[in-house]
Design a binder for these strands. Structure first.
Lengths: 338, 338
DNA sequence: CTGAAAGCGCTTACAG
DNA sequence: CTGAAAGCGCTTACAG
């Protein structure tokens, strides 16, 4: 079926070694034979067989990304940055998704499968013992995105800091009785955001009331969606709770909450001010104040880290942490001078 | 480094052929030797080498998807459906992105690379001559998603029909002077939506004014974003044009337009009614009336079509067309009884 | 049920 | 600069 190196060799009157050299840009080939080989190859439409090549070379040119789910726009944005950066290389991207924590191990297993990928990017997954062991025994390079473990390169946003900034900002615009919509209890980023928020509050002597915290108690990556935000806000409203500020652990949750508020007698930002997290493109168009994560930049950097690790496995482990930046828009009021 | 079939064979005291048979669920292996082999394999943590296996078998278990860009949420949703369906199989997904038409050929080339994928899904790309030839000469199965060509299986939404329904609905709610925000002139789906809309209008004796059509004249898949919608609507407003209805060729464009209107003296839906296309999850939370495409279902079906084509290459080419369904929300008024 | 051997399509020392 | 040959790690007729 496919035409092979043997066909080219025969047609060009050289050995297969020479054909191989031509296709590997080996300098030890004369210009004339190189040209001859290329001519024949072009004519016959030859392409080296991907598997044969990686088998012989003992290495692949594909990397794997394991994300909770593609339909979460945060990942879509990060992957976009990753792909843009990858497009300049000859690497291919395998994408696995693991919507629940239980599935992470299985997907990781696929990605780590011997001979499958040259490197793996694991997104937003707490590196628990089982995973850690698995990663350790396969010695393929790994970079963690949106999560952290001391033993692996990682790239993330300073979620605690983001929470603090959210608290500081809300407080500065007059909020005194805030509520929080937290994605889900198993999400490390969400937990850190909450933690930072609480800390920011406490520094100014404010505490988050017990019943003002709504946690979407779903799987490991659920809760990061509009519906969770909508339901969370509705729950608050139905309990007769009327906070004057709201911190949502993601933009989509904030947007869901905004819709719930539309059906209430509370106006944004007069009665309640809202701040999200991520700064998805959509945030700008709904006027949502938020903490920006440099999503596509994170994807691009993740790829670079992985490449670096692939070429220099002995490098010291490095953790890249981006500072989230506050993007004030119309769901919060103007900063109130003290 | 990696442990191979030879190691297992030796440790289990059998030949490599037997080990291979065990891992391929070949029934011609006695239960006892199967157990013995598995025991050793588990102990040593053996995994068949991916490339070696596909080379020997002359087939891969990976499929490729070529999408314009991951950060377009329509694709994120379709890919989610695809992945969910794929998760039940042993196939892996390679994702390529081609933001401009020029890049499609290159990415297709990668996906079609000999030995790389068992099947390819091409998204939203007009299958022009160059592509068609390329597809033809590689005989790997292809399914087209969100686009059409008589020679290949395809799955899409009836975009013309969607445009018609949009027109009918807007007209029925009282619109008489509509405008359209079209993504970009090279997009086949966008063109069809516009065409259908015009047709729907004309059936009731209404025509789309020349200057009421704003086309985002960017690359092949630009224009499907909030910014284009925002700019388009702004352009309309600045030209002093005040339509009483707006059809945007995607939800995100509609959302951008809504933001532009917020800065104007026109209210939604009192002064201007809006209808989008796609029904992204977010649409519900901004109250956007839209035409729903069954996105994840499209992804799932695309995978099934591809599998079918892979197993029965001689099957007749089939085109699956979903009917878009109208989802009325608050950016349009109640249907006016005739 | 099991093994020896050829083959999948490359790459890469080793000679020359 | 070029070729013969071994090797990458499997699968799969072919014998037995």
């Amino acid at each position: 079926m496919g035409i092979t190196i043997y066909d080219i060799a025969e047609a060009a009157g050289v050995s297969i070694a020479t054909v191989s050299r031509v296709f590997n840009d080996n300098p030890r080939v004369s210009e004339s034979t190189r040209a001859a080989v290329m001519e024949v190859a072009d004519q016959l439409g030859y392409q080296p067989h991907a598997s044969a090549r990686s088998l012989a070379r003992q290495q692949t040119e594909t990397i794997s990304a394991i994300v909770p789910m593609l339909s979460n726009y945060f990942y879509a944005e990060v992957l976009k940055g990753l792909q843009d950066r990858m497009a300049e290389t000859s690497f291919d991207l395998l994408v696995y998704s693991a919507p629940t924590l239980d599935e992470v191990e299985g997907q990781l297993e696929k990605a780590l499968h011997r001979g499958r990928s040259a490197g793996v990017m694991l997104f937003s997954a707490p590196v628990i013992d089982g995973l850690e062991q698995r990663l350790q025994q396969s010695d393929i390079p790994v970079v963690l995105v949106d999560c952290y473990h001391p033993a692996y390169d990682s790239i993330s946003t300073d979620n605690r800091r983001g929470g603090e900034v959210a608290a500081d900002y809300l407080l500065s615009t007059g909020v005194r009785n805030p509520a929080v919509l937290m994605a889900n209890p198993h999400s490390v980023p969400a937990s850190h955001r909450l933690e930072g928020f609480r800390h920011g509050l406490s520094r100014q002597g404010i505490t988050l009331e017990e019943d003002h915290l709504i946690v979407s108690s779903m799987g490991y990556h659920d809760g990061f969606n509009e519906q969770a935000g909508y339901e969370g806000m509705t729950k608050l409203l139905e309990a007769g709770i009327k906070p004057d500020g709201l911190f949502a652990t993601s933009d989509v949750q904030a947007i869901g909450a905004m819709e719930a508020l539309r059906h209430s007698d509370m106006n944004i930002p007069e009665h309640i001010q809202i701040i999200g997290f991520d700064d998805l493109p959509i945030a700008r168009y709904v006027g949502l104040t938020t903490l920006r994560q440099p999503m596509s930049e994170m994807g691009a950097r993740a790829f670079e880290l992985l490449m670096e690790r692939m070429t220099r496995p002995a490098n010291t482990v490095a953790h890249t942490v981006f500072a989230p930046t506050l993007i004030p828009r119309t769901t919060t009021r103007e900063h109130v001078a003290v």
